[in-house]
Nucleic acid binder design. Sequence first.
DNA 1: TTCGAATAGTTGTTTAACTAACTATATGCC
DNA 2: GGCATATAGTTAGTTAAACAACTATTCGAA
Lengths: 146, 146
Amino acid sequence: MPNNQFKKGELYSFITGKASTAIARRLQKKFNSAQLNLTIEQWSVLYHLWKEDGISQQELCNATFRDKPSITRLVDNLEKLKLVKRVASKEDRRMNMIYLTPEARKMQEASMDLAEETLNEALTGVPADQVEICKAVLQIVYDNLK
Amino acid sequence: MPNNQFKKGELYSFITGKASTAIARRLQKKFNSAQLNLTIEQWSVLYHLWKEDGISQQELCNATFRDKPSITRLVDNLEKLKLVKRVASKEDRRMNMIYLTPEARKMQEASMDLAEETLNEALTGVPADQVEICKAVLQIVYDNLK
DNA sequence: TTCGAATAGTTGTTTAACTAACTATATGCC
DNA sequence: GGCATATAGTTAGTTAAACAACTATTCGAA
């Protein structure tokens, strides 16, 4: 049952997601200024590996909401940068387990600090309770469409 | 002055914008099913031209939050699809004024209906006042980073 | 009036998303 | 055991975003 909250005139910015692209753009510039040679997409993969590495590409697909070809290419590029290694699983030879290199571990703190800084800039002037509501709405939207 | 609303553990989904990509993906599938041979990015350009055509590429850049090369290529592809025409301005020969073709005008209603339907699906179960708060927050975020 | 700066748009390069088609390995059923 | 099916990952092709470098036209100030 549609709830018809949207009129045709206001569809645009919700669909095009200009806020999140602006955040990503700002963070990318901070990475460049800090000589962190990383794209936001590569960072988003490392983000999950910093929490736990030695996971399969399929698990990275689920964590980052990307399809398999996208992860194949991101891991390709991260491997070229010597930030991760593919290791064939012994239990299931179809799987590549992805491990961080020491260089990648060194980048965690600086890049997370820049991400936190970016979000604080983005959310300046927004009351904390509205941020919470916004996060909840975006989660519901994602779940509705999954 | 940062307001430190974010802990490091919850940065991810705000930056990666998974909700808006899910919406765009859903809408793209509806376009494909309806034989509307359009990408979401092409649609986002037509969206502004339906409101007013005969505008310059620069004006399309501002309206769609894209840079000039992106609009050049989107207009290239829309021209190949015979949905728009570039017409050199008589007052300022640097400018291309972009006009819709009759075929493009025919696509307005069906595509806007699908966009509205997609948003209603996305926002099922979200109270209207929370949608308003979320829209306001995303607008502030965009303005903060602009 | 002319020359430097600003503006409008294009082209080339890299990275990435998505789809479809593909290979290789594993699983499960007969 | 052998074959159909599912799963993990790769490759190819198209579209798009971001950035830098470029051309052409216009504007503005000495």
